[in-house]
């Protein structure tokens, strides 16, 4: 287990989001974090990727607490792609990918053969070689997301954390990105952890699902174990029926209509609209 968290508690200011969570991320597998809006799945991902300092407990990478490690060392072992990153102006795809080499570079070693090769490989793996000299802001959302993934690939880190890599993409591009991640896992054996809000995508593309409910681990295991009527009702307050995906055999959940849910005397989902992640984060990230 190269990455695990022990008794992890995460908070924004004084608002606790994750409490006493212990998780193990299996090596060489795709792990999906699922949960309702504001359940803490993105927060957990940020905590694992040391974007958020634990209130207590710790995240361990190869047995060492990441707070004890140099941030560059971590970056060489683990890449993280935050959700909906800003659009830096005047940056080409190639330049963005080259930024992935930052943790491998120093004052004197700024562009080694290895750097050049890693960037070329990352562009090739994400299919962005043809776009390499285009500016990021002239690309489609899907192409842009590929460019960001190219950056994390160029990091040559074994573990990749991705926070909702498919947000803001249309369905075709969503599938495209998830296929790409799947391929990276299959071919190179990379460990991938991603927060996803679509249960069916999580079921289809991951080996293991961690379901988060109000900052606690509600269920964990392979998709067949986690995507059940019982668990989904528990974490989303939503009645679903589960069928088998005819193309992959993965579980597929079909929401039962709200009217039917009312007949079961069950309150509708209680999360506020628009509150995808805690307020503190939204504010900091640039509501201005």
């Amino acid at each position: 287990m190269p990455l695990h968290a022990n008794d992890l508690a995460l908070a924004y200011g004084r608002d606790p989001v994750i409490a006493d969570l212990t998780v193990h991320i299996p090596q060489g597998q795709v792990t999906a974090l699922v949960g309702a809006n504001a359940s803490g799945k993105s927060t957990l991902l940020r905590g694992l990727g040391r974007l958020l300092r634990p209130a207590h407990g710790a995240v361990y990478l190869d047995g060492r607490a990441i707070t004890q490690m140099s941030t560059k060392d971590i970056a060489r072992r683990m890449a993280i792609l935050p959700q909906g990153p800003d659009l830096p102006e005047g940056v080409t795809v190639r330049q963005l990918a080259a930024h992935g080499r930052y943790p491998h570079q120093g004052m004197l070693q700024q562009w080694s053969h290895r750097d050049e090769q890693a960037v070329a490989d990352a562009l090739a793996a994400t299919g962005t070689t043809a776009l390499a000299d285009r500016m990021l802001d002239e690309l489609s959302g899907g192409q842009r997301q590929r460019a960001w993934i190219a950056m994390t690939l160029a990091q040559e880190a074994e573990i990749m954390l991705l926070d909702e890599p498919t947000t803001f993409l249309d369905i075709a591009h969503q599938v495209d990105i998830l296929d790409l991640l799947h391929e990276l896992n299959e071919r190179d054996g990379r460990t991938i952890v991603m927060a996803l809000h679509d249960l069916n995508q999580a079921a289809r593309y991951s080996h293991r699902i961690l379901a988060i409910r109000r900052g606690r681990l509600a269920a964990e295991g392979p998709p067949h174990h986690v995507i059940t009527e019982h668990v989904v009702r528990d974490i989303f307050d939503l009645d679903v029926s589960i069928i088998q995906d005819p193309t992959t055999g993965a579980p597929l959940c079909i929401p039962i209509s709200p009217r039917a849910a009312r007949q079961h005397h069950r309150p509708a989902t209680s999360t506020p609209p628009g509150g995808r992640s805690p307020n503190a984060v939204r504010q900091d990230d640039g509501s201005v």
């Binding site: 941030t71 993280i80 990153p85 930052y102 004052m107």
Partner: peptide, 21 residues
């Protein structure tokens, strides 16, 4: 000498932190 870091910071705080800045 700091231009390298400046360029990484321009990606945004979180991506930069992820890169080990």
């Amino acid at each position: 000498g700091g231009a390298r870091h400046l360029d990484a910071l321009r990606l945004g705080d979180h991506p930069a932190r992820g890169l080990g800045v």
